[in-house]
Amino acid sequence: MKKPLRKRMNRIFLYLALFAVCFVSIFPYLWMVLVSVKERVLVYQPGVWFFQPTFENYKTIFQRYDLGSYMINSAIIAGCNCVISLFFGSLTAFALARYRFKGRKQFSFFMLFIRILPAVASIIPLFIIAAALQMLDTHAVLIITYLLFNIPFTVLMMQGFFEDISRDIEEAAMIDGCNSFQVLYKIVVPLAMPGIVATAIFCIINAWNEFVYAMQLTTFNASTVPTIVQMFKTVTGIVWGEMSAVGTVSTLPVLVFAMLVQKQMVRGLSFGAVKD
């Protein structure tokens, strides 16, 4: 009798804890959705839970602020950047996982080290370089700039995945006459697919949400979704409803994508997680 009771208590505790975690995680998002359908005067009245929802804000952001074109820019930039990052990054990760060469550890550390550069410190130099190359306000400038954080991230993640893949298959392929590039793309990459998916999601999220560089380097043709927030920070205060509507809509694609590939993502993460 005693054991089942304790087990049941544990169960209840587990579910309570899980509920708490979920609640805290999604509450700000839910609150944002709520604000996006509130009338302006209700935004400052948290106690009002029942009201006539308005969808004016959603209409405004698409019609007046043309959110659609910002989202297309974001998609182009995040997509291209992700592909290039994965390509360059996994090449490097493969080399770091397979070859023992002088400076390997240092290079590996260098990849981590790149994270130290604060965006506020690098923005002026990057702006000046981009201006000199006449690349301001193009998709290319953000695609390239975002490599700064996404390539090192890819290298860090993929190195672990590659180290986990058994070398026997590769060696067999080598004997069959494949060169090392062919081995990488015919054998290693398919095996590391879950890891690549997991990395891709984080790369896309990083690029999709980046704000400081996007703010400075683009103006009319290539602005991404996060920069639209600027329009709602008026001298007379924040236009909460419209900003929340943008937040709700712009998070959705990433969220849906992440949930669709959730299984691969966790499998991918665990793939390279434990290494020595």
Partner: peptide, 26 residues
Amino acid sequence: VNTRVLASTEMKTMQRSNSSTKTGIF
């Protein structure tokens, strides 16, 4: 007319950086 609307602090940074490098964007 193309317009870019920014919060005032960010707008000033944008004006200074563009004008001092003479990008000719605006």
